[in-house]
Amino acid sequence: MSARNFALFSGIFFIAIGILGFVPGMVSIPPTQPDPELIVNTGYGYLFGLFPTNLVHNLVHIAVGVWGVTSARTPKSAILYCQAFAILYSLIAVMGLLPGAGTTFGLMPIFGGNVLLNLATAAIAAYFGFIKVSGIDVGPEDKGRVAS
Rank of each mutant, 00 (worst) to 15 (best):
V27A: 02
T32H: 13
I29W: 09
F22Y: 05
F48S: 08
I12N: 06
I19Q: 02
I39Q: 04
P52I: 05
Y44W: 09
N41L: 14
I39N: 04
N41R: 13
I15H: 07
G18Q: 05
P30M: 09
N41D: 10
V27N: 01
G11N: 08
F51T: 10
V27F: 02
P52W: 06
N54G: 11
I29Q: 15
F13W: 13
M26A: 14
I29C: 07
I29T: 12
D35I: 01
P52K: 08
L38E: 01
S10Q: 07
V40K: 00
H57R: 04
P36W: 00
N58L: 01
F14P: 05
P24Q: 01
E37H: 03
P30Y: 08
P30K: 11
V40C: 00
I39E: 05
I19C: 03
S28V: 08
G25S: 14
Y44I: 08
Y44A: 09
F13S: 13
G21I: 02
Y46G: 04
T53W: 14
I15R: 06
V40F: 02
T32E: 12
G21F: 03
F14C: 05
V56G: 08
Y46A: 07
F14R: 07
P36M: 00
G49D: 10
F22I: 02
P36G: 00
M26K: 15
I12H: 06
N41T: 11
G25W: 12
G21N: 03
I17H: 11
T53Q: 14
P30A: 10
E37N: 03
L47S: 03
T42H: 12
P34Q: 14
L47C: 04
I15N: 06
E37V: 05
Y44K: 10
F13M: 13
I12M: 12
G25A: 12
L50E: 06
T42A: 13
N58E: 02
G25M: 09
F22S: 03
S28E: 14
L47P: 03
I29Y: 12
V27E: 01
M26F: 15
F22L: 04
G25K: 14
T53C: 12
P30H: 09
D35N: 07
L59A: 07
L55C: 08
F9C: 10
L50A: 13
S28F: 09
M26V: 14
